[in-house]
């Protein structure tokens, strides 16, 4: 397949075939991760900048590792040590990156649209590493890779996503992609975190986790930002856990060998019971490994990797 995209901003830009192509490309990448000597020369001489405006060790490290394994030079623009703290606008930061002839930019930002904003300003490619509550396409792709690996295929499978849907870019990007791949998706959460307008996604919305679990092939539970309690979005961790916390007993209601996913970092005992997170049903650590593989695949494709063979 000829890869036609310069950027990855969200999954609505990709066709189902293109998503499959990314996942296919990630398979050999994952094999490379298992090698004793991992580093490839593929992108030697290419430069990647990581613009991390939001605390995110996990996503930053994942992209950094992915870039380095492909042989690219990876520069971190972490907010604490850059001019961003001196009030430099995103626009001027973009101009600076442009002047440095960076080849690919990964941005993680608290504002929806920050990645698209950057993409409009730059000649370099842009990967959205998460923008506000808008999109997190690489997380969704690594979730699809994990689902495929565990379930064989995604079409026809039932995926329940539970938690703070309203503020979740992970849920949004996942639903966009899962629908394209033919999965059945149900979104579950309390009304304050699952308002009716989330219906735009065109999937079932439900307040009742126990009712939705039967038949689920995968349950994805989202991190609950505990400060949302102060804003009155949920009354207590106790009641949240009672209604939406995932436990071994509750998971048994699916009636099948269901996998449990979480984008991390975990609030153990809040959205997921500790023993469940560490159980055989959990693929949470696998998601992290797959994250590196999928990001390698994306970086490879976006940097014109279609022309040279990645694995010799």
């Amino acid at each position: 397949m000829h890869w036609r995209h310069r950027n990855l901003l969200d999954l609505d830009d990709l066709t189902a075939d293109e998503i499959e192509h990314v996942l296919q490309t990630a398979v050999p990448m994952k094999e490379i991760l298992a090698r004793p000597l991992k580093k490839l020369p593929t992108l030697r001489g290419k430069s990647i900048a990581l613009m991390i405006y939001e605390n995110s060790t996990r996503t930053r490290t994942s992209f950094e590792t992915a870039g380095k394994l492909l042989g690219a030079d990876v520069t971190n623009f972490s907010v604490a040590q850059s001019s961003v703290n001196k009030g430099e606008s995103l626009y001027d930061t973009a101009k600076t990156l442009q002047a440095m002839r960076i080849d690919l930019v990964v941005i993680r930002h608290a504002s929806a649209g920050a990645a698209a904003f950057l993409a409009e300003q730059l000649k370099a490619g842009v990967i959205n590493g998460g923008d506000g509550a808008h999109a997190h396409p690489t997380q969704a792709l690594l979730d699809f890779f994990t689902l495929k690996e565990r379930l064989g295929e995604i079409a026809g499978k039932k995926v329940v996503i539970v938690g703070d849907i309203l503020h979740s870019r992970v849920a949004r990007s996942n639903v966009l992609g899962l629908k394209k791949l033919g999965a059945e998706v149900v979104l579950v959460g309390p009304p304050t975190l699952l308002p009716p307008e989330m219906g735009y996604l065109g999937v079932k919305l439900s307040y009742d986790l126990d009712r939705e679990l039967p038949g689920a092939d995968a349950v994805m539970t989202l991190r609950l930002q505990l400060e949302r309690q102060e804003r009155g979005l949920f009354p207590s961790v106790r009641e949240y856990h009672r209604l939406y916390g995932l436990t071994k007993e509750r998971l048994a209601k699916t009636g099948k060998a269901t996998i449990v996913m979480h984008p991390g970092p975990l609030n153990r005992g809040v959205e997921i019971a500790s023993d469940l997170a560490d159980s055989n049903s959990s693929v949470i650590e696998e998601q992290v490994t797959n994250g590196v593989a999928v990001r390698m695949a994306l970086i490879y494709l976006l940097m014109g990797g279609g022309t040279s063979r990645v694995v010799d």
């Binding site: 929806a112 923008d131 999109a135 870019r169 308002p195 307008e197 735009y200």
Partner: peptide, 13 residues
């Protein structure tokens, strides 16, 4: 404005 489009864009409504 809070609604489907704000939800789609991930912008606070």
């Amino acid at each position: 404005r809070k609604g489907e489009h704000s939800a789609r864009l991930g912008l606070k409504g």
